[in-house]
Design a protein around this nucleic acid. Structure first.
Lengths: 334, 334
DNA sequence: CTGTTAGCGCGTTCAC
DNA sequence: GTGAACGCGCTAACAG
């Protein structure tokens, strides 16, 4: 790779001038500019962004940390963030924290040591205190899908409790009395918030929480499979299910539960109504098509990107919406 | 962020010594080593990897370029590659080329300017010549899902033609005579290879190609929807379909086609058999569960990562498998 | 408008 | 074992 020196020599100017035509940081006479550009082209010169980054303490790249790189949910998030930055000329460095505290911290430090201008964080295991410390080191970052009270101005979240409420309230309104619930890992904030919404709806309809209708899954397909097996084993009397509806903490688990229900010969929605959460891309491939709570993940990602564009790159961005509202996607599984 | 100078001052040694304990590049007396480590901890010091990278011309990170960041296919690929590098202590920088030549080139240059030690490329639009030039600049990179003759030692591919053959041959063996085909964009190598396999099977069973049974889609769900609409409109006489089986270039299109077929009141597999391609994660959520060709994308990603580990980071890796064989995943849609 | 000169934070000879 | 000095490729004052 040619360096800026070689370009300077070939063009017969100093290296500062080269820098100027690259960055348009000062006026350059048209004729010398042309010479420089010719030289750059001849040598196939590209500025070394590592060196640029070291010199300017800017990298034009923002770090993104999510829990997993796979799965429909995160890939949609990442995809949208990348798109947003791409047409702002910024780049993206992606890492996965695997919902594991040490890994999350290590990843954050990696992204910081990589000189990212800002970070977009979807972290689940790291503590609120840690995030606050990070903020005090005045590192620019936004938090997605988690609200830290002291950092509320940089949190972009979904009202998960409302989502949980919406799902259950809808079923109650349809006349269901016994509603089972398969949640994600309760230590995860979104999982517990969603369940909280479920309880809120029950309470509003004067129905008591029945712990035997609750199963804590893992947000994966298998969680739905095991959850359904567990719940139905506990409740089936004379081959009848002990509940008429099932709310799942996310779509993967709903799909898993649905598959098992199919295998048991249950007719959905006749024998059992199922509601998911997230509205991931495959949720309308299921049969019957899954009724679910829409998680506007793409918009949230976009908003996070705009937060960065506004606060770090000083672009003119109107308003930053920090709390998004979920809504019910009515399909055929109810 | 503390720098190496501050650590040196606090520990009362020179900065060279700090560098030595970090990189274990030369013996350091135990006592001073302890002092240094204490100082590093006290300051919360982390080496600035940008500076390291500039000094060593190594970044310990490898660039990955895929067509899209979203969708089940690429996210699984990325996820596996990241996992493989993670436990080798390497990092990953991801970019999307959007199947667009200019973007792909720009992305490659970005990754190179980012000082990546190696590149893993899934590119569709850039020319073979361009890739060869890249190789001549002796940049380390592997190519996924595309075979460039001159670069065969660094291509890791699936035998797409075999996959296409397998799908159609299976249907022929089951007695189907009229088999429709919805392909991906034919300028994409994998799409045309798969179709080639389809033709090969037909030929083997002495059935002539019927262009009216072919539709060129876009590898997206809508391609399946439109494709099925198109094919059935052209062929339905008296509300009867002109074909008994349908092969799709990938699972997304198969799911789209299946949904339309459902809407038309067709019974799958009774009225129509469908075969997909890729075996993406949602393919067993469809109803009926989709029969498809398994694309071992995770293994391919892993192998690409190992190629890099072996050739660039000089790790002991046994054998690099360069061509993978697809196989039929028999499920319920046939 | 353009050239000179310092750094940016770190790795790496080469002496001691 | 340890320190001083130089260089990685580029930007940013400061002169001119």
């Amino acid at each position: 790779m040619a360096t800026i020196y070689e370009v300077a020599k070939l063009a017969g100017v100093s290296l500062a001038t080269i820098s100027r035509v690259i960055n348009q940081t000062a006026p350059v006479r048209e004729s010398t500019k042309i010479k420089v550009e010719a030289a750059m082209k001849e040598l196939g010169y590209r500025p070394n962004s590592v060196a640029q980054s070291l010199a300017t303490n800017r990298s034009n790249s923002v770090g993104i940390l999510v829990s997993e790189l796979g799965g429909p949910f995160y890939s949609e998030l990442i995809s949208r963030i990348e798109a947003e930055f791409r047409n702002a000329g910024k780049h993206v460095i992606i890492a996965a924290g695997h919902s594991h505290e040490e890994v999350e911290r290590e990843r954050i430090e990696f992204l910081m040591s990589r000189n990212c201008d800002a970070l977009i964080l979807h972290v689940e295991s790291v503590s609120d205190e840690y995030l606050q410390e990070l903020a005090e080191q005045n590192k620019a970052f936004v938090i997605i899908n988690r609200s830290v009270a002291a950092l509320s101005d940089r949190c972009i979240t979904l009202d998960n409790q409302l989502g949980g409420y919406l799902a259950t309230e809808f079923l109650l309104r349809k006349g269901h009395k016994r509603i089972a619930y398969i949640s994600g890992p309760m230590w995860k904030n979104d999982a517990s918030e969603r369940y909280k919404g479920h309880l809120q709806a029950l309470k509003e309809y004067h129905i008591e929480e029945d712990i035997s209708l609750f199963y804590e899954g893992d947000f994966q397909e298998t969680g739905g499979v095991h959850g359904f097996a567990h719940l139905s084993a506990k409740h089936s009397k004379h081959s009848e299910l002990g509940f008429t509806a099932l709310v799942c903490g996310n779509d993967e688990m709903a799909a898993g539960a649905m598959a098992v229900a199919h295998d048991r010969g249950l007719d959905i929605p006749h024998d059992l109504s199922i509601v998911g959460f997230d509205n991931v891309n495959f949720s309308h491939y299921t049969y019957p098509k899954l009724t679910t709570i829409d998680y506007p993940i793409a918009e949230i990602g976009q908003m996070a990107a705009r937060w960065v564009l506004k606060h770090v790159y000083k672009q003119d961005i109107e308003r930053i919406q920090s709390v998004f509202k979920p809504r019910l996607m009515l399909r055929d599984s109810c």
